[in-house]
């Protein structure tokens, strides 16, 4: 399943950035920078920030994110997000592995409320340090290519972006999907709907409560035997990677919640 998922992620990463066509009036709910010269869709976080900066609410963007969240939850985080794919590869690099405290997952809600919404509303255009200006995906897909093509007028800002990017790379090498768990504002938005998603791993009565799903989970969710869903504790973190479904010895995990 993991190999299949990596292939699907690679296919999506290529599809989103292959530049065959440009539909920037549509936001696809994954973190993929629309300033990338060959990107296909607009980034929902970028558009939310831009709209917040001029005091508007993008109904299509919020609506599409809600529809995606209510139907497939964070499935796209696990199967389609290009930066999730990059982090999966980074974690395979032999490097010091470490755990992070559980409370750190709440930081991403602060990143969304602060850098995506509040800073553009209250500080733009005086402050350009809203999420897009610091986003590691934007640095990889936009800031670095454009700095190579056109040069940069603000080397200090580019250095800051590179420092953030390299910090996240180091942390993602040591902790699986560090950015998704701790910092991703899109993950924060989708996780709100995750508890209500239609496509969601669910445990059946054949479960022997061996806890293998818990030990395997890349998002560190915790199973519970007598309630809805495989993951009762931290269900908002589940990215439907289905590693638990594949490794379950009694085949007790089904996809449809």
């Amino acid at each position: 399943m993991e190999k299949l998922r990596l292939k699907v992620q690679l296919a999506f990463a290529a599809l989103f950035n292959i530049g065959l066509f440009q539909w920037h009036n549509i936001c696809f709910p994954v973190l993929n920078c629309h300033s990338c010269p060959t990107s296909i869709f607009a980034c929902p976080m970028g558009i939310l920030g831009q709209f917040a900066g001029i005091g508007l609410i993008p109904l299509t963007v919020i609506g599409l994110m809600a529809i995606a969240g209510l139907t497939i939850g964070r499935f796209l985080c696990g199967w389609a997000c290009p930066f999730g794919f990059v982090q999966e590869l980074l974690y395979k690099i032999p490097y010091l592995k470490f755990n992070i405290p559980s409370w750190t997952r709440f930081i991403k809600y602060g990143v969304f409320a602060g850098l995506v919404v509040a800073v553009p509303i209250y500080l733009t255009p005086e402050s350009s340090l809203y999420f897009c200006r610091l986003c590691p995906v934007g640095t990889i897909e936009s800031a670095i290519p454009w700095a190579i093509i056109n040069g940069t007028t603000n080397p200090g800002h580019l250095a800051l972006r590179l420092a953030i990017l390299f910090s996240i790379i180091i942390l993602a090498m040591g902790h699986r999907r560090f950015f998704c768990k701790v910092l991703c504002p899109l993950g924060a938005c989708l996780s709100v709907f995750n508890r209500f998603a239609v496509v969601f791993p669910e445990r059946q009565e054949t479960c022997s409560e061996c806890g293998s799903c818990n030990r395997l989970c890349p998002m560190e969710t915790t199973p519970h035997p007598k309630d809805f869903g495989v993951f009762v504790k931290k269900p908002e973190e589940c990215i439907s990677c289905l590693d638990c479904r594949e490794k379950c010895p009694t085949h007790a995990v089904k996809l449809w919640g």
């Binding site: 109904l59 609506g63 809600a66 529809i67 209510l70 709907f193 209500f196």
Partner: peptide
Amino acid sequence: RKIFWVIIFSLSVAGTIYG
């Protein structure tokens, strides 16, 4: 949970179509 889901989903679809 299901009623909540239907309400939020309907609002999301309506908002997307309107937008």
